[in-house]
Write a protein that binds this DNA or RNA. Sequence first.
RNA 1: UGGGGCGUCGUCAAGUGGCUAAGACACAGGAUUUUGAUUCCUGCAUUCGGAGGUUCGAGUCCUCCCGCCCCAGCCA
Length: 575
Amino acid sequence: MEKQRAGEATPPNFIRDIIIKDLKNNTHGGRVITRFPPEPNGYLHIGHAKSICLNFGLAAEFGGICNLRFDDTNPAKEESAYVDSIKTDVRWLGFDWEDRLYYASNYFDRLYAFAEELIRSGKAYVDHLSPEEIRRHRGTLTRPGTNSPYRDRSVEENLDLFHRMRAGEFEEGACVLRAKIDMASPNIIMRDPPLYRIRKVRHHRTGDAWCIYPMYDFAHCLSDAIEGITHSVCTLEFENNRELYDWVLDNLDVPARPRQYEFARMNLSYTVLSKRKLVQLITEGHVKDWDDPRMPTLSGLRRRGYTPGSIRRFCRRIGVARRDSTIDVSLLENSIREELNRTAPRRMAVLHPLKVVITNYPENRSDSLTAINNPQDPNAGTREVPFSRELYIEQEDFMEDPPRKFFRLAPGREVRLRYAYFITCTDVIKDEASGEIIELRCTYDPKTRGGNAPDGRKVKATLHWVSAPHAATADVRLYDRLFKTPNPTGDAQVDFIANLNPDSLKTLSDCRLEPSLGTADAGQQFQFERLGYFCVDTRDALPGKPVFNRTVTLRDTWARIEKQMQQKKKPRKKS
RNA sequence: UGGGGCGUCGUCAAGUGGCUAAGACACAGGAUUUUGAUUCCUGCAUUCGGAGGUUCGAGUCCUCCCGCCCCAGCCA
């Protein structure tokens, strides 16, 4: 096993501390059993990755196990398609639940028996109040609730009623099984919470076997107990539910006594993570689907070119705590750059082509030059790239009237073409009608082959380029942040949709790539030199016709300088 | 306004009464560079939401105050 690099060890967090203490005190018989419990009603996103890494990571670190358990107690919202995508994503992230793939729905019989046990001990009752009446009886944050008139039915009557609920004798909403706790509890969760409701809906796994389904608060803690979970880790919004979690387990004869611990869910700048909002983005057509490369879903990130390792490292770096937090996306971006810098083969690709004719280079001749595949990895070897009289360079690498700090190509200036020759710009050809620059005439110095001048003269810039007659053509998708504001949902007055970045996707259809890129396979990742990291799309690419997605740009100091110069030019706005 | 939580650098986050308050990202300088990339240096909280108090000593303990988050689904 590769030794963890310094600073990459799992940082301490309070849940880890609890486990260490429990292990020391033999609280759970020295065992650590966690679980990742998604509801199959949507795709996993980067926030779930935090939970997955935490739960599986904790188990791995302390010699325990982590189960994958689908919390499928609401058939109206859940689908097996989501089960499949979740399994794919967890596996892709690099975690293995082995033979421990569980479903809350597998426990429906046992859960039903637990409910009967609660009724028999006088701690649950069937309530015939309507949903509206239940709400009214619940009271408010500051006022206690009032008891349901059905609260004191006998055990026999409750048992009978509950059996009849299960038998389908009542309509949806006609009645519900409730825990008999305390309608005056300051914790609203404890005011006789519903345990079972009637749903005459086909369940994706149990079919029509049931018409009553357990609520989260009843099913989750008992599922944990059934599986012998020791540390039930969830997010902070369930903190109020912990009292009920404990109540259920304390009032039933359960096989194990798990404990719930809560950590803060993450927010990520320039995006949204709530399932409701992600769904909205899809249904309103702002993005294509769950796996749109702009989505913070694991399938979106995967398609964007993020690797499992980069996401795991990101999750390790953000830590686990109880305070609200918004992680800067640059941390995520840094995680993938860091990996791809080490691993991605370099290639040259011209996204916005500007034709260059080397006037002193013979027609009908070509040249083959050796390029290094990855300067960070000597084992990556080299490749040959063709050179000829007609080339393409990046439009933004030439300026007719360059500012001081611009040291790329300009009239009369000499620059290096990477791995090729020094060239000097002699003429600028423009479209007569529009004035647009359509071609450059340059000369090359044959003595600089490979990129070095024998006389030792230096150039200030090295440009990437592609030989025109040899180039492959492809579509390249430039993805950027989905929202233009760091906190798209921050202003309650503004619909987050209004904060969408209109430039989150730019599709370029006339990009010229070095020939080898024309046959790249789906999923392959490259660094396009001086531009960024790109991968071949896995959905829209055809054999021999790849489509490239930009994962992330390279850090771009020049862009920053340009921006600063622009800001200087503009008169400062009064603050 | 009832209850439950949380406030340490721009963003995360260590810190569990006793060296000069870790580290990462971001940012700003500089060096190296055939990617304005990478890499490498350097800088970046006299102060921990605020005010009092306890203590020889407080980010850590106490009191009060301020701010933010969660809970009134037959969702999870």
